[in-house]
Design a protein around this nucleic acid. Structure first.
Length: 736
RNA sequence: GCGCGAUUAGCUCAGUUGGUAGAGCAACUCAUUUACACUGAGAAGGUCGGGGGUUCAAGUCCCUCAUCGCGCACCA
């Protein structure tokens, strides 16, 4: 056999390092990530079906982790598949300013490197620092995303805090304000003493801890015992509530008791009857602390009881004498417990498991406090929405199948969340974020897109919850509020949103809220939720465990294609998946196998004279073509059903066990001893099949397939045309 | 307390509408320069978490229990 006249690269093992950056550059320069260019260059029909999707914008707080890598991989598979199907395909990138997360990260750095606090710098200077940090972090994460092979349209990149998005935020806020959906109210809110801001109910993370459960009386002659895990809040009690049907306490209801000295504080306690109290819990009597408990505040409101705040924003006591005044709640707790014991008032002290509320971003222990904040009313009927509430709009979108959630069990979880939903607190006492577009002048208040012209108006100091701007993401990135924006008209509602199931409430639900209300359509037709990536033992990856794998290290070592395959195969929607280096290694071998298959196919078909006029297949090859055809039908269906994990495995299986191990082996015999028809037939079959394998595999392993494609004499062999007169594989037509 | 998911080979997972269990990785035996050692051939490995039921037939449908994980609520 002659020395094969094929690309010399093929004679060595496949080297992803030499290949991937070069290929990515070719893709970027082709412009094909941008659907407009695809239309311009004639690879996509102008009237083609639209496929659009926004990338869940990564926070500008750090670097790419495996969760991002999985997101990028799954979404790139969807995007490349759609593009190859000839759809008008847009995958839109961006980053998230992640208000609290980013600000607290910069605060930490400032503290560590300069020993300064943000107040030392002032709002303006501090924000400059945050912006600088955000910019650097942004650049890192964008470059890392490119390493994964993501075919995102970078020309449309957006940021949740840039000028255009800020305009969208102000527009949205103003409309909601005018409709009475946004209001300012004095309420018990979740205060994070560590982050020095209010947070929403969804930003609370419950942690189970051991706690002491004290049962005691306020004074010796007080008739009812109460229980609590937080004795220090009891200096703020104004009542004891019992169940109306509780015979034990019936005679006391309505009476008021004065306790002259409760660890240095005078209390006035009224006994009230309220249905919210459970007879069987504790003593069946509840000490009512309206300022520091949501439920107590509700009870207090029903009975016209006063609110007495005893804890401040730094979780320190604001009442009492030197024993507790200015002490932290945790210290005051012990002081009062000790006092109760000494006074003989303590009846019982038990160990209990308790869920304590912590702030998701800072880890601070939440202190319920009464505060004046901005809220979104989710229960107010909206006139131009047939008097439906935001809650109902959110429910309808999924219930009426305007939105399909994959896997569908998350629909239940979504409904359950909405049923328990309370008004969304959207103001934050931090500097980094969208400033609330509201101005005050004395008692006057103004909400608008711009500051009022006249003198003397002062803007609200607070910024908005980061999820407010994220909620607008599917349309704020497409030109909204300009309803005539061509992108908005073409690409919204988006085809699909793909994200981790852990942010279904934070993000998915808020996007549905914003889009159904502001745009009047669903934000996306399908929600595809993926799971969490865990380590080989099934543990969550974390820095403290030291078990996290860096996706960039993995791509360096094994190639992005191998990393992508291992992130997709063995992962169904909604299920957590496990990641190990063994798994990736297997797919690195696969890339090389494909490389060698190509070497064999190209070199063994080279000398064959093709009979293109009479494209004739042997009986055996006709069967093989049928088999291949069935495979294509099958995987195309599975791709359309988003079962990528099945397709990846199937094509792997076919390439290796069927095409290489069986078909190539028997081809050796045919090329050696077969007649011309058989040889010609087999050569054509091998080239066609390899081309189809490359196409099907391309969404999964874009780099190696594109590289091999560039070496394939496809047109020459199959149609008699000139070599290399072919498009990039990324815009080739999906096989059929 | 309410709800959800998982439990299949040593490990990671497939298993469509019920028809006597599949793949990858690992381990085992053989092949030794082959398109590819980032390889090939072969063999081995499972009473499908336990129990009960429906059915001619159950990994698959129903009930129940157990273990692990998760969400929500409660958390006086």
């Amino acid at each position: 056999m002659n020395e094969p006249n094929i690309d010399s690269k093929l004679l060595k093992p496949y080297d992803p390092k030499e290949t991937e950056d070069r290929i990515y550059k070719i893709w970027e320069e082709s412009g094909f990530f941008n659907p407009d260019v695809c239309i311009e260059k004639g690879v996509t029909d102008k009237d083609a079906e639209v496929f659009s999707m926004v990338l869940p914008p990564p926070n500008v707080t750090g670097t790419l982790h495996l969760g991002h890598a999985a997101t990028l991989t799954i979404e790139d598979i969807m995007t490349r598949f759609a593009r190859m199907q000839g759809k008008r395909t847009l995958w839109l990138p961006g980053t998230d300013h992640a208000a609290i997360a980013t600000q607290s990260k910069v605060e930490k750095i400032l503290e560590k490197e300069e020993g300064k606090r943000k107040t030392d710098l002032g709002r303006e200077e501090f924000l400059k620092r945050v912006n600088k940090f955000a910019q650097e972090s942004h650049d890192t994460i964008i470059n890392q995303s490119k390493k994964m092979g993501a075919s995102l349209d970078w020309s449309r990149e957006a940021f949740t805090l840039d000028e255009k998005r800020n305009f969208a935020v102000r527009t949205a806020f103003k409309k909601m304000y005018n409709d009475g959906l946004i209001y300012r109210g004095h309420r018990i809110v979740n205060w994070d003493p560590k982050g020095q801001t209010v947070i929403s109910d969804d930003e609370i993370v419950y942690e189970e801890r051991k706690a002491k459960f004290y049962t005691f009386k306020y004074s010796k002659d007080f008739p009812i015992s109460i229980s609590t895990t937080r004795p220090e809040t009891k200096v703020g009690d104004v009542a004891v509530a019992v169940n109306p049907t509780d015979e034990r306490y019936k005679e006391y209801v309505g009476r008021t008791y004065i306790i002259e000295d409760f660890c240095g504080v005078k209390l006035e306690i009224k006994i009230v009857a309220d249905d919210a109290v459970e007879k069987d819990f504790g003593t069946g009597a509840l000490g009512v602390t309206p300022a520091h408990s949501q439920i107590d505040a509700e009870i207090a409101a029903r009975h016209g009881l006063p609110t007495k705040q005893v804890i401040n924003e730094f979780a320190k006591m604001t009442v009492g004498d030197e024993r507790i005044l200015n002490k932290k709640t945790t210290e005051a707790r012990l002081v009062i417990a000790e006092w109760l014991k000494n006074e003989g008032l303590l009846e019982k002290e038990e160990d209990v498991d308790q869920n304590i509320s912590t702030a998701e971003r800072t880890g601070g222990i939440i202190e319920p406090l009464p505060k004046l904040q901005w809220f979104i009313n989710v229960n107010k009927p909206i006139e131009d929405k047939n008097n439906k509430t935001l809650k109902e709009l959110m429910l309808d979108a999924v219930r009426n199948k305007g939105i399909n959630i994959i896997p569908d069990r998350f629909e239940k979880i979504y409904f359950n969340w909405i049923e328990n939903l309370r008004d969304w607190c959207i103001s934050r006492q931090i500097w980094y974020g969208h400033r609330i577009p509201v101005w005050y002048k004395g008692k006057e208040i103004y909400c608008g897109l711009e500051a009022p012209k006249e003198e003397g108006w002062i803007q609200d100091e607070d910024t908005l919850d980061t999820w407010f701007s994220s909620g607008l993401w599917t349309f704020s990135t497409l030109g909204w509020p300009d309803l005539n924006s061509p992108d908005f008209k073409t690409y919204h509602p988006t085809t699909i949103i793909e994200t981790g199931y852990d942010i279904i409430f934070f993000w998915i639900a808020r996007m549905i809220l914003m889009s159904t209300y502001l745009v009047g359509t669903v934000p996306f037709k399908t929600v595809y939720l993926h799971g969490i990536i865990r380590d080989a033992q099934g543990r969550k990856m974390s820095k403290s465990l030291g078990n996290s794998l860096d996706p960039l290290e993995l791509t360096k070592k094994y190639g992005a294609d191998a990393a992508r395959m291992s992130l997709v195969i063995g992962t169904g929607p909604g299920n957590d998946s496990k990641m190990s280096e063994d798994k990736i290694r297997a797919y690195k071998n696969y890339a090389n196998k494909l490389w060698n298959i190509t070497r064999f196919v190209l070199s063994s078909t080279e000398g064959i004279k093709f009979n293109n006029k009479f494209k004739e297949y042997s009986e055996k090859d006709t069967e093989l073509i049928k088999e291949r055809y069935e495979l294509i039908i099958e995987v195309t269906k599975e791709m359309e059903e988003y079962k990528f994990y099945l397709v990846g495995d199937k094509i792997y299986q076919y390439t290796w066990s069927r095409f290489a191990d069986v078909i190539l082996e028997e081809s050796k015999e045919i090329f050696q001893n077969g007649n011309d028809i058989d040889k010609n037939s087999r050569a054509q079959f091998l080239l066609e099949t390899l081309a189809d394998i490359l196409k099907i595999l391309h969404p999964f392993m874009p780099f190696v397939t594109e590289e091999i494609w560039s070496m394939m004499p496809v047109r020459n062999a199959l149609a008699g045309g000139p070599i290399n007169n072919k498009r990039l594989l990324m815009v080739e037509k999906w096989p059929n």
